[in-house]
Structure formats: structure tokens, C-alpha cells
Design a binder for these strands. Structure first.
Ligand SMILES: [Zn+2]
Ligand SMILES: [Zn+2]
Ligand SMILES: [Zn+2]
Ligand SMILES: [Zn+2]
Lengths: 161, 161
DNA sequence: GCGGCGGTGATACACTGTAACAAACCCGCC
DNA sequence: GGCGGGTTTGTTACAGTGTATCACCGCCGC
């Protein structure tokens, strides 16, 4: 749905993301359980950020209720392992299609029209932030960069229509 | 509690912030009602980001209950006029000591130790973000930049102790 | 006075997230 | 096979955050 830039190892698409999740868990000796897989799928399938309760509802079916708390636990696990991200400004979650180095700053580009979320990173942004923090005498531990606006696809669509 | 940098017209301190709030409302023909003033004071007095429910509790007294919904309305008003900011990663609010141009990007520096929140802005950060967004074909409308870490004061205190 | 309008009070509710405990599962070990 | 301990999941209850709705009040213009 969205393109991105600034990354190399780019596993886009549902299959790729699931494969990466599986690989990450195997190499770290962690369990990629059915529930975790289903939550990963639910987040990866959706074209936009999913709330935990949305996921719980999607996974529930007549005869099987998946409680939100279970979804939260799975999401915590997936976030710890860099497989999904939380979008603070939406209280929602997206799959990570890239696999960043830990500590690497990433900007989330959130489209107001289609709701899609893309990730971008860049040296110059990172450098600018680092220098600004250094000047302020602040030692960063973790950062949240989220930009809301209109993605390229939606802007084209709007001009065409 | 915290220093900041990158701004000129810098009204720090409770009095300055209240004066600015009053001035802003007067010049825009808006009402700086007692409730709005009290909420502004509560946010400005605290050395760290305040939750809406914290503010409601602080303003309540035996015989007078201020409901959270009233606080939210006052906060919405103050945010629309650039007098307070919402810290998305904390669901909390801080006073704005600067008065930015609309659209000006600001980074919030959130200290893990003391809970204080400082604002910083810089040309190079702004430029880096703009270029990154442009390359991604994304048109920004509003951005959230929040960094969690250790402020200078707390780091010094830690080294001394 | 009367009607409109913005601000406030009050209640109820939806949404987001966590704590606590029990049950099921897995796996190595006796 | 049976046991023991760690991890995962189910279940319930609850805390925290934010919004919808309606009623009331005060003000100002007509
Ligand atoms: Zn990512
Ligand atoms: Zn879009
Ligand atoms: Zn500010
Ligand atoms: Zn500090």
C-alpha cells in the first residue's frame, strides 16, 4: 500500500513478514506460538494501524473468544522483538516491514486519508535530532517520531479524481 | 526546572505563562474563564506533565468537584490556542512556555528520572525532517516528536551523588 | 422579555491497558 | 512413565483515558 525508503532488507508483504517473524524467533530461541502468529497476521494483513480490540475481535469467532489481554501480551512480545510497532498517536499497531537496528530512529508517516502507515528513516534526520539533543544537554534513550499528513498515493488519487 | 533552547520570546515561570495566556485570549477575542485559568495554572505549576485526571483532582476540593470532562474541555481550548501541549507517550499535558509559530516543529524532551518535559526546536532538525518527508512523497500536516531520556540536571545530580 | 450562543455541570458510556490468579502446555529430568 | 518448573494462555476484574449527551446558566443582541 505504501512505499518507503531508507532501508535495505525490506520484506514487504504478508508472507515476508511472517517468514521474518519465524526466523527471528527461531534464531533467538523464542516461541512463535499460534496466537502470536495470528496476531502478527492480523496486524500485517490490515492496510492500516489496528487497535488491540480490533485484533481481538478479528481473531474471535463463534465458539472462540480471544480476549484483548491476550492480544496485548502477544503484541508486547512482537514489539520486544521488533516485529510490530505501536503508533502512540493512534493507540494502534502496525507490522514492521524492515527490521531495524536497535536504537535506529524511524519516523512513522500516517496518512489522514487512507490510514496507511509507512516508515522512513534517514541519516540527516537522525543527525539533526542528535545534534539538537546534544545542544539541549539531553541523553536520549528512546524516541517517538510520528507525522500525520497525506501520503503520495492519496494525493495523486485526489488530483486525478 | 529545565532549560531549553531555540526560542526567542521565552516566557518562563507561572506568571509569564498566565500573562501570555491572557494576552492571547484577549487579542483573539476568546474568553479566559476562571476554569480555564485554573487548569492553565495547574498545568504550569507542576514540574512535570499532568494527566487530565490529576488536574481534576487538584482543582477539586471539599464542596467542589471538577469533573475530568471539564478539564478536557479546558485543555482542548488551551491546546487549540497553543498554550499547552499534549504528550502523546504519557497521555499528559505540559504548559507551553514559548509560543511557536503554527507548523513549527518542536521536540519534547521527557526525562525518565524527574519527569520534567522540555521543548526544543532547531532548524537542522526541521530541515532533516522536511527532506525525509519530501523524499518519501509525504505531505505533513502535523508531527509528534517525543524523546525519552535523561535531562542534563538529572545526569549531573547522578554523577555528583 | 426572548432567543441564541458559548461555557459549565453531571451522568453515562466507550476505549485502552494492566493486575492477579488459575489452567494448560512444554520440556528436561528422575 | 511421572514429576517439577518455566512459559503461555484463559478468565475476571479493575484502573486509566477520553467522548457523547443533555441540562443549566449567564451573557449579549434584538
Ligand atoms: Zn519498523
Ligand atoms: Zn494515504
Ligand atoms: Zn511549546
Ligand atoms: Zn530530569
Amino acid at each position: 500500500m505504501h512505499r518507503h525508503e531508507g532501508h535495505d532488507a525490506c520484506e514487504t508483504g504478508l508472507g515476508g513478514m511472517l517468514a521474518r517473524a519465524e526466523a527471528v524467533c527461531r534464531e533467538r530461541g523464542l516461541q512463535f506460538t499460534p496466537l502470536r502468529r495470528e496476531v502478527m497476521e492480523a496486524v500485517a494483513e490490515a492496510g492500516k494501524a489496528q487497535g488491540a480490540y480490533d485484533i481481538a475481535e478479528k481473531l474471535s469467532a463463534p465458539g472462540r473468544r480471544v480476549a484483548p489481554v491476550s492480544v496485548y501480551r502477544a503484541l508486547d512480545f512482537l514489539m520486544e522483538n521488533g516485529l510490530v510497532h505501536r503508533i502512540a498517536s493512534r493507540n494502534a499497531f502496525i507490522p514492521c516491514a524492515h527490521g531495524h537496528a536497535p536504537g535506529e530512529g524511524v519516523v512513522f508517516l500516517i496518512c489522514r486519508k487512507c490510514g496507511g502507515v509507512d516508515e522512513a528513516s534517514s541519516e540527516e534526520l537522525e543527525d539533526g535530532l542528535d545534534r539538537t539533543l546534544k545542544r539541549a544537554g539531553f541523553t536520549p534513550a528512546h524516541s517517538i517520531l510520528e507525522v500525520e499528513g497525506d501520503c503520495g498515493a492519496c494525493r495523486e488519487r485526489q488530483q486525478a479524481g
